[in-house]
Design a protein around this nucleic acid. Structure first.
Length: 760
DNA sequence: GCGACTTCCATTTTT
DNA sequence: TGGAAGTCGC
C-alpha cells in the first residue's frame, strides 16, 4: 500500500484508525485533506463497501476534489459510490426521497436567502408591522438561528427566555412571524437552507424506519471542518452514527470562523462527552508555510483564550518576514498591491495563480480590481454577487422552479409579470390575499379563480389564464424531454430570450445579461451530457443540483492564470505562495460589529489566523490612512492585529512621510507606542525620497496644491475631466469645487482627490 | 398598470 | 455611492 508511505507518522496513525469514534485536530497546513482522502481510500482498500461511507464537507468544491483524489487511488466508480458532499446537498437528497413523510412534496424547491427575505417582508406587511423595527434581514437571522438550534415555531413561542429577549428588543411578534413563515414555506412546498437541516432532523426523529435505514446505510461517517458545524448538524450526525459509532470528525478549533451562522465550537469540546472512549489524533506539522509565517500566526492565535492546546510547527525554511505596508488611501492601497504583484511576476514568479488578495468584506475588492485592470493583470473575484444571484439568472431559474413546483410562491411572484404581460402589483396583492384567506397557494388561486375568487379585472383574468396554460405546457414536457431541451424552450416561449436580445443594443450590461443566460443554458447542456447510459437528466434533476451550487463550484480548470481576490472566509482551505491581506484597519478587521464581545473578537482573530496561514512563501499586510465610504473619506487606524504579531516576524515597509503623513496618521501614534514600528524610531525621511518610494502615481500631496487654482483644468479618477470653480481652506483641509461636465459640480478634499492637472 | 422620478438607506462573513 | 422602495402622473 504505497500511499501510506506518503504520510508522516501522526497522519498515518489517523488514517489507519477506522473503527470507533475518533477526532482529528488538524493544524493549518498539516495535510488535513490528505489524511481525510487517504483514510477513505484506505477504508475502501480494506474492503469496506463505499456505499456505506458518508463524507460531509463544508463546500461542494472540497467534496469534488476529495472524490477525485480518492478516485485516483481506488478507482472512479468506487469513489462515486461514496456519499460525499456538503451537509446541505447530502441531506437535500435524502429529503428528496422522504419529504412526503413530513408534509412536504418530494419535488420541494429550495428558497435562497433572497427568497426568504422577500417572503418575510410580505408577512411583515400582512401583519401590518413596522418594517423598521422588523427588518427582514434581522427577522431572517432570528428565524435562521432558531432553526439551527432546532427550535420549532411552537417551541419558540412557548419559550419564556426567547419571548423575554424579543420583548426586550421590542419585537414581540417575531414568534408569530416565524410561525407564519414556516406555514407559507410549507404551503409553497419550499425549504430554505436552514430547513434542509432542520427537516432532516425532523425526519430522523419522527420516522424510526428512515433513521434505521440510513444508520444501516452509513456505517462509516466522516465530517470535515467539524469546528464549523452547528447544533442541527451535530445532532443529525450523532443520530446517524448512533448504531455503529464509526464516526471520524476532522477540524481545527483555531479556524472556526462561522459562529455568526450558528457554528458551535462546543461541538468539538462535546465530542469527548458523547464518545468518552474516542481516539484523538493531532496533526501539528505544517507543510505549507515558511517558518516565519507559522511563527507569526502562532503568535497571534495564542492570544485567544478558548482553544485546544496544540503546537503547530514546520521544517520549512525561515523565509521572509511578514511585510506591513501603509498607504494613504484605499485607491493607493490597490495600486501598491497591484504593483507588487506586477514586480514579483516580472522578476521571479512564473504565473499569476501564485497570488491572492484577501479582504474582510467583499466591497473592498473595488480598488484592487481597478488597479489590476490598469496593469493588465488577469484576476478573478470569488464570491460576491454570485452568478446564480444575478437577476436574469434568477428570473430564468424561477420559471424552472415554477415548472417543477407551481406552488413555489417566490418563483411565481418573480415571473408572473416578467416579461411584462400586464399583471400588475394590485392584482398580485389580491391574489396573495385570496390565497391567504383560503389557506392555499397563489398557484391554486390563479388556476381556479371560481373557487378562490380574487378582486381582479376580466382582462387580467384572461392574462392569468394564459400564464397558467403556459406553465402547464412546460410541466407536460418536464419529464419527457431532457433539461436542456426544456430550458431552451422555456427561455424562448416566455419571451425572456427575445427581450434580452432586444435590449442587447442598449449597452454592455445588457449584452452581459444575455451572455449570462446563454452561459446558463450551456451549463445545462453540459449537465445533460453527464448522464450515463439510458438516464434522462430532466429539469428537476438540474434544479436539485443548481440551488446548492455556488460560484466556487463552477470554476473551470483551464482559465486559471489569474490573481485570486476573495474574502478571508472563502479562502479557507486554500493556499497561495504569495498572499496579500488588505484593509488591516480597526473597525474593518476586526469588524466594528465584533468589538463588543470577547468571543466575537476571538473569532475575528481566528479569521486573521486563517488568513495568515493561507500563505506559503510570502505574506504582506496592508492598511490605509483613509477610505472612501458612503461618498466620503473616513480616517482609518491600523488594526490591533498588526500589533499582535510578534515583532520579530514582521517588517514595516513604508517609510514615514515627513509632512502630510502626520495629519493622516491619526491614532497611529497611540497604537504604535509599543515600539513595534521600527520606522518610527528612524529619523523621518527627507521629502525628496518620497518619489523613490514604491508609490505609483503618487498624488500631488505634501504640497499646498499650488498648481490647482480657480480655472485649472483637472482630471478626477471617477468623475473625469473638470474645471475648478472655487477653492476653500488651507493645507490638508483644502477643498475645491469642481465642475464636471458629466457629473455636475462636486466638492472634493484635495488631499484625497488625486487630481491630475491638465494643460489649459 | 406602467414608467419616470425621488427618497431613503445601507455598511460582515455564506451553505 | 448605488440599489431598492415609494410617489406621482399618464
Amino acid at each position: 500500500m504505497g500511499y501510506l508511505d506518503e504520510l508522516n507518522e501522526s497522519q498515518r496513525v489517523a488514517v489507519e484508525h477506522i473503527y470507533g469514534p475518533s477526532m482529528v485536530i488538524a493544524g493549518a497546513g498539516s495535510g488535513k485533506t490528505r489524511v481525510l482522502t487517504y483514510r477513505i481510500a484506505h477504508m475502501v482498500e480494506q474492503g469496506i463497501d463505499p456505499h456505506n461511507i458518508m463524507a460531509l464537507t463544508f463546500t461542494n468544491k472540497a467534496a469534488k476534489e476529495m472524490s477525485e483524489r480518492i478516485g485516483k487511488i481506488v478507482g472512479g466508480s468506487e469513489a462515486k459510490s461514496i456519499t460525499m458532499g456538503t451537509f446541505h446537498s447530502v441531506f437535500s437528497r435524502i429529503l428528496r426521497y422522504n419529504a412526503d413523510r413530513i408534509g412536504f412534496p418530494n419535488n420541494f424547491t429550495i428558497y435562497d436567502t433572497q427568497d426568504s427575505k422577500s417572503l418575510i417582508k410580505d408577512i411583515i406587511k400582512e401583519f401590518s408591522l413596522d418594517d423598521k423595527t422588523y427588518k427582514p434581514s434581522g427577522v431572517f437571522g432570528r428565524i435562521s438561528s432558531a432553526k439551527n438550534n432546532l427550535i420549532s415555531p411552537e417551541a419558540y413561542i412557548n419559550n419564556t427566555d426567547i419571548q423575554a429577549e424579543d420583548r426586550m428588543s421590542r419585537r414581540p411578534e417575531l414568534g408569530r412571524i416565524y410561525a407564519q413563515y414556516a406555514n407559507r414555506c410549507q404551503r409553497a412546498g419550499a425549504m430554505d437552507f436552514d430547513d434542509l437541516l432542520y427537516f432532516t432532523n425532523v425526519l430522523l426523529s419522527t420516522q424510526p424506519e428512515v433513521l434505521h435505514y440510513y444508520q444501516q446505510k452509513f456505517k462509516y461517517i466522516l465530517v470535515d471542518e467539524y469546528q464549523d458545524t452547528n447544533y442541527a448538524q451535530y445532532l443529525i450526525v450523532k443520530k446517524l452514527a448512533a448504531a455503529y459509532e464509526n464516526l471520524c470528525v476532522v477540524g481545527d478549533d483555531a479556524q472556526s470562523i462561522y459562529s455568526f451562522r450558528g457554528a458551535n465550537i462546543e461541538n468539538i469540546l462535546n465530542f469527548r462527552k458523547d464518545y468518552p472512549d474516542f481516539s484523538l489524533f493531532k496533526l501539528e506539522q505544517n507543510y505549507r508555510s515558511s517558518q516565519n509565517i507559522v511563527d507569526a500566526a502562532n503568535s497571534v492565535i495564542k492570544r485567544n483564550q478558548d482553544q485546544i492546546q496544540k503546537s503547530v510547527w514546520t521544517h520549512n525554511g525561515k523565509g521572509n518576514p511578514i511585510s506591513i505596508v501603509r498607504t494613504l488611501t484605499d485607491n493607493e492601497e490597490g495600486r501598491v498591491i497591484a504593483n507588487k504583484i506586477y514586480d514579483l511576476k516580472q522578476s521571479k514568479v512564473p504565473d499569476y495563480n501564485a497570488f491572492a488578495i484577501l479582504y474582510r468584506t467583499n466591497k473592498q475588492s473595488r480598488s484592487f480590481e481597478e488597479a489590476l485592470r490598469k496593469l493588465n493583470i488577469p484576476y478573478k473575484i470569488y464570491g460576491g454577487l454570485s452568478f446564480y444571484q444575478r437577476k436574469e439568472i434568477k428570473d430564468v431559474l424561477a420559471y424552472f422552479r415554477l415548472t417543477a413546483n407551481p406552488n413555489d410562491e417566490e418563483a411565481l411572484k418573480r415571473v408572473i409579470n416578467y416579461p411584462k404581460r400586464g399583471i400588475g402589483k394590485t392584482s398580485i396583492e389580491n391574489i396573495i390575499i385570496s390565497a391567504g384567506s383560503h389557506g392555499v397557494s397563489m398557484w391554486d388561486v390563479i388556476q381556479n379563480l371560481q373557487q378562490y375568487p380574487a378582486d381582479i379585472t376580466n382582462s387580467t383574468k384572461q392574462k392569468l389564464y394564459e400564464f397558467v396554460t403556459m406553465i402547464r405546457s412546460f410541466q407536460a414536457e418536464m419529464l419527457k424531454v431532457d433539461a436542456y431541451t426544456l430550458a431552451e424552450h422555456i427561455t424562448r416561449s416566455t419571451g425572456i430570450l427575445r427581450e434580452l436580445v432586444e435590449e442587447k443594443e442598449k449597452g454592455p450590461e445588457e449584452v452581459e445579461r444575455l451572455q449570462n443566460v446563454e452561459e446558463l443554458l450551456a451549463g445545462i447542456q453540459e449537465f445533460v451530457k453527464t448522464s450515463e447510459e439510458e438516464e434522462l437528466k430532466t429539469l428537476p434533476d438540474f434544479l436539485l443540483d443548481v440551488s446548492l451550487l455556488t460560484d466556487a463550484d463552477q470554476e473551470k480548470t483551464e482559465d486559471r492564470n489569474h490573481v485570486s481576490l476573495m474574502t478571508i472566509h472563502s479562502s479557507k482551505g486554500l493556499e497561495y505562495p504569495h498572499v496579500y491581506i488588505v484593509g488591516m484597519e480597526e473597525n474593518l478587521f476586526p469588524s466594528q460589529l465584533s468589538m463588543s464581545s470577547k468571543s466575537d473578537l476571538e473569532e475575528e482573530r481566528r479569521l486573521f489566523y486563517v488568513a495568515l496561514t493561507r500563505a506559503m512563501e510570502t505574506c504582506t499586510l496592508s492598511y490605509t490612512g483613509s477610505r472612501f465610504v458612503w461618498n466620503q473619506s473616513i480616517r482609518c487606524e491600523p488594526s490591533r492585529f498588526l500589533d499582535e504579531i510578534d515583532a520579530s516576524f514582521v517588517h514595516h515597509e513604508t517609510p514615514m512621510r515627513s509632512q502630510q503623513g502626520r495629519s493622516l496618521m491619526g491614532g497611529m501614534d497611540r497604537s504604535f507606542t509599543g515600539g513595534l514600528n521600527v520606522s518610527l524610531k528612524q529619523p523621518s525621511l527627507p521629502r525628496s525620497l518620497k518619489s523613490l518610494s514604491n508609490l505609483p502615481n503618487s498624488p500631488s500631496q505634501g504640497s499646498d496644491f499650488q498648481d490647482i487654482k480657480v480655472g485649472t483644468n483637472v482630471e478626477h479618477s471617477r468623475f473625469g475631466k473638470g474645471k475648478v470653480t472655487h477653492l476653500d481652506g488651507n493645507g490638508a483641509d483644502k477643498k475645491a469645487v469642481i465642475f464636471f461636465p458629466h457629473h455636475g459640480a462636486k466638492t472634493v478634499l484635495l488631499k484625497f482627490a488625486n487630481l491630475v492637472v491638465l494643460p489649459d
